[in-house]
Design a protein around this nucleic acid. Sequence first.
DNA 1: CACAAATATTAGCGAAGGCTAATATGATGA
DNA 2: TCATCATATTAGCCTTCGCTAATATTTGTG
Lengths: 113, 113
Amino acid sequence: MITPNCDVKAKFMRGFSEKTRLQILDAIRHEEKTVSQIVDELKGNQSNISQHLACLKGCGIIVSRQEGKFIYYSLRNHHIIELLNVLDVVFNEVEREVAACEKNDELDGCTRK
Amino acid sequence: MITPNCDVKAKFMRGFSEKTRLQILDAIRHEEKTVSQIVDELKGNQSNISQHLACLKGCGIIVSRQEGKFIYYSLRNHHIIELLNVLDVVFNEVEREVAACEKNDELDGCTRK
DNA sequence: CACAAATATTAGCGAAGGCTAATATGATGA
DNA sequence: TCATCATATTAGCCTTCGCTAATATTTGTG
């Protein structure tokens, strides 16, 4: 309602719209982790992960705290955790539905042909 | 869990990560609407809206039905509706927190400086 | 202080995304 | 059948994004 600021909301949502970022969120879902832990776990590139962490932080999805030379990242608060849970449920439902009901070729979203 | 297919999930989420698409979802949130209704409401470009609708449909977020020469779009199911509701709640919380707590310059997510 | 580990930042490249204008398709009705 | 309305598709342009490699910054340690 009230014509929400879709611009800001879109930026917030963009945090969840990329594979690596989703994997990061999954990795720190239940416990905070350091950058190198995440890098190891995802077998990713340090620079790349670092950039995605910055993105997620900028989106307000995660927070960080420093401890010595380590920086721990975790989900911002319980709202985000709940959101991830709801997302999973909804996604599973929709995935099933889309996969099952529709012979419809394109699950592929907006990609160009 | 089970290392979900983040690739597909990311595509699903991408549907929610763009201003115009969020506006469309808002427009059809409570009732199905035709393309032209949406175009009018958003004061948008027909081609543009049509493309975003195709994207949302491809993501499994909305569905369409034809009635004469009109095509009505609506949210796929109640799960999506719930999801939008949860998103609003969480976003409001986070928006406040991010805006308030952090003097942190970047609310702007991953954008380059 | 010098060095090493942990993380962040920058630059540059190629791919994907979003927009507009133009054109195509499909349905209706005279 | 022709004209028109509703929608979809295509092409081209420009911007944004994600990745890698290289470099910088910060912190702890000998």
